[in-house]
Amino acid sequence: MHEPTQAQPALPELLNDGLARVATARTTDELRALEREFLGKGGVIATLLAAVPSLPAEQRRAAGQGANELKSKLAEALAARERELQEQHLSAELAGASFDPTLPATPPRTGSLHPLTQVTRELEAIFTSMGYAILDGPEVERAYYNFEALNIPADHPAREMHDTFWCDRAGSLVLRTHTSPVQVRAMERLKPPFRAIVPGKVFRQETTDASHEHTFHQMEGLVVGEGITVGHLIGTLKTFLREVFRRDLEVRLRPGYFPFVEPGFELDARCPFCTKGCSVCKQSTWIELCPCGMVHPNVLRAGGIDPERWTGFAFGLGLSRLTMLRYRIDDVRHLLGGDLRFLEQF
């Protein structure tokens, strides 16, 4: 503390001394102390100002002015030095900061949609954008819709191809072997012309292994209208494949036998994964994608539709297979196995 003495230093000296000490202060604490010393209650400036009234009248004005000038200059210097110190501190902090993005962080708990759901939704979106309705049908189905209505009478050898799960001894209920029973169910409900798809679960009495399942998912497609031709079937499926695989794939139709279509086809597409043959296409460069055909007149009749006026086409997409292709799943049993370690990946 500077006690007022006779030998009061001159103002310029005080100023220089103050400014020099502010300039060399290293911390904000030091600045606070200097602030108290010079500008605080009973500090240097206050003492100077307190002495003013006791001065001769002609000196008072100059002394007052001088003290105030000293006060504002020091205050300014203190503020400037404080900003400077803060800058320095921030720069030092920034210079010392670091982040290792490879250091693992606890992941948030997340959920997932089943891969079959994801693929089904994608296909539904493609077809609904083309004006198709999405229909549903029972998994426990009447043999009538699964077979008879589809031109597969009792004793037809095609019934054997289906490896049917029978739900009663009388043979009137089955676990549907395909989504096709919804064809005649749809015809009974909708008036032609119409377009519809039917995603769903189907069943075959079959021993399971990595590529065979007794339960899998299919998507039926059905279009009935006037003047529908094989050309429309080809056009429709090519459009669909372009959307799914996001590029043009060469396709071919070859004869295939299904009692509920006539003519019946298998649609193959060029393997989207190779050019010279791979494990997916079994080295053939073609993958079998979709049984299809023109709706058999007997099926239209079963649905109460006049086959002379209306024609149509139907196709069946293997949802399980498309899902396996999409995610390169090599064991079909994972799809319905319910193992979280599998489900979490999607």
Partner: peptide, 18 residues
């Protein structure tokens, strides 16, 4: 041969599915 059949787009009135 089905390769000889030209593909054709389906043409139908633009009505939204229910």
């Amino acid at each position: 041969g089905y390769a000889a059949i030209p593909e054709r787009p389906l043409v139908a009135p633009l009505t939204p599915a229910p």
